[in-house]
Design a protein around this nucleic acid. Structure first.
Lengths: 341, 341
DNA sequence: CTGAAAGCGCTAACAT
DNA sequence: ATGTTAGCGCTTTCAG
């Protein structure tokens, strides 16, 4: 109760209180074993008593460690993909939960101009990065130039070494195809994202095709739409013109949900007239009616693993680390045997 | 290309390049008009050329401004409310978009123990806070003690002065009641969050009751459930035992969606057997079938206004600032006239 | 109008 | 084993 103008209790304060040097305090905080057990105990006691809290800014300045990581979402037009597709928020919630347990906070970025990105990256002194979406070379040049550890999601470029987290998309597509085939479908459509920019969608389609080929069939229709509710919604109008199609496998749940919705409005009964499958297993899959049969990529696990991989990268562990999650099928009510003709 | 060990270009570098003092550079960065137009131009040019980027940590340390704000979500049991109820992610996306335009980044916190909260708050030197959920006095003691500007969402305590953003919940409830009444419903249930802890739900119910009273009626059933999909899902089983009830107004969309879903599974047809209304107007309202009639609280606007209010608070504008959003009704397909008996 | 210098809180050589 | 000290990058009196 003496000083009036002090900002908050610093290591100097506690050093003075204990009668040691600030460095000693720093040592015990950072676990350097350069201090005797006795003084260490005294220091710890003083820290607790005086309510010492480390200042991230000071640490960041002095040690170059901000304890801040960034997560960059794709910038689909001007849409907030993060609120439009629950996939991102479900991922973020779980990623953040895991990484905050290690003392990191997460800030959100959007992949806009490389200049803005770089400014953001260096001004915050980010310790790590998780990147969604398109992999622009300029962005990576920047990340590499600043030597910031990063992890990619759903990454497939074999010519680029990087840590990443993904689901086995081919297997997922295959599982979907198998399910539909087993049900007796023969005319199966694929509805998903732009195949040239989205490797993920390619792989999912590849898996579907594999299953179809094994049955001596091929994809009845291949539709590329934006990965949004509206993308799926629009797709329904073209599906309507293909009465021979009895099942659709969508590259993402959000697209499947849009399709489901509009198909019903158009008088197409699900699953009687059309079986619909998605991919992701969003919480929303059980919100819709009929509940969506989908390929589950354990999103909470994905978020968690992304955090673990990033942490490992930050700790300088062997590079690159890549994990592939095994998808499973979640059979609900949007798929059934095709109606007898 | 001389120095090999430099971290990044600082104001010293550009000062040297231009031949002025570091202070001069700082002045132009901060818009102090203490520097002649000529040198200012030269400094600006050098900054652009050398790719100067300010270091937030240094600014934070020196000026006590982190350009970081925190957003605290309620901690409902161990659930990640943020991924379970899309309301939060839709809010966050819009809040973040708005506040990042002013150079702030947002970090997510969870209202756990006061100690953890305080540590988080001060170690990051947060410039501002937006708080959801319960308003524990200890938390506010801490916030006030550190003089951190903050804005509350959906706040109703008249004894506590604070900036806040909310929707006119009473009016929303009234609108809902009116709609249902106009349709011809007489036995209307309320299904929402715990009335003792959630002022918001109280207000929404209050609005409903007002409409009912005007019609000489009272609420047929009042059900308190967790504000989750499952909360609504469970509610359906009790609704089933009340065949006299022809309409339900839910305190949140997520609850309404759960109710919708389970009611259908139980063979209750929506809207024929039961009209269902929600509150919020989540994106998910159009995902479900039938599309949910709801009271719209413009969530993007809410996020934006929260950011603006917080910014104003940070700028030390007059205190407290409170904005109330006017709800509107979004009539879709989950409500209809009651079936003729 | 401009510069010198003292911090902000912490870390990491380097001494002792 | 512990203390001294020089930064990290920026802001801000206080002099010139």
């Amino acid at each position: 109760m003496k000083k009036i103008k002090r900002r908050k209790t610093s290591i100097y304060d506690i050093a003075k209180a204990v009668g040691v040097s600030p460095a000693a305090v720093s040592y015990v905080i950072n676990g350097r074993d350069k201090v005797s057990p006795k003084t260490k105990a005294k220091i710890l006691a003083a820290m607790a008593e005086m309510g010492y809290v480390a200042d991230h800014a000071a640490v960041s300045l002095s040690r170059g460690k901000s304890s801040l990581v960034g997560i960059c979402f794709p910038l689909d037009s001007s849409a907030l993909v993060f609120s439009d597709n629950p996939f991102y928020s479900e991922f973020l919630a779980n990623f953040e939960k895991e990484i905050s347990a290690s003392g990191y906070d997460t800030i959100i970025g959007y992949l806009q101009s490389p200049e803005d990105f770089e400014r953001w990256l260096v001004s915050r002194g980010l310790d790590g990065l998780v990147i969604f979406g398109l992999y622009s070379p300029e962005i990576f040049k920047i990340i590499r130039a600043h030597k910031v550890p990063f992890v990619l999601t759903d990454f497939y470029d074999p010519d680029f070494e990087a840590s990443s987290i993904r689901v086995d998309d081919v297997m997922g597509g295959y599982l979907a195809g198998k399910h539909l085939l087993d049900l007796g479908h023969r005319q199966i459509a694929y509805i998903g994202g732009d195949l040239v920019s989205s490797k993920v969608d390619c792989k999912r389609l590849e898996g579907l095709n594999k299953a179809l080929e094994e049955a001596g069939l091929k994809c009845a229709l291949q539709l590329e739409v934006p990965t949004t509710f509206n993308g799926g919604y629009e797709a329904a109008t073209v599906i309507r013109n293909h009465p021979e199609i009895t099942a659709a496998f969508c590259g993402s749940d959000i697209v499947a949900i849009g399709l489901l919705r509009h198909a019903q409005e158009l008088g197409i009964s699900i699953p009687d007239d059309l079986s619909v499958m998605g991919f992701d297993d969003l919480n929303s899959c059980t919100y819709v009616y009929p509940a969506l049969t989908t390929i589950r990529q354990d999103i909470p696990l994905k978020g968690q693993l992304a955090a673990k991989i990033l942490l490992a990268e930050i700790d300088g562990e062997e590079h690159p680390l890549t994990q592939t999650i095994r998808p499973t099928i979640a059979i609900r009510n949007s798929t059934a045997k095709p109606k007898a003709k």
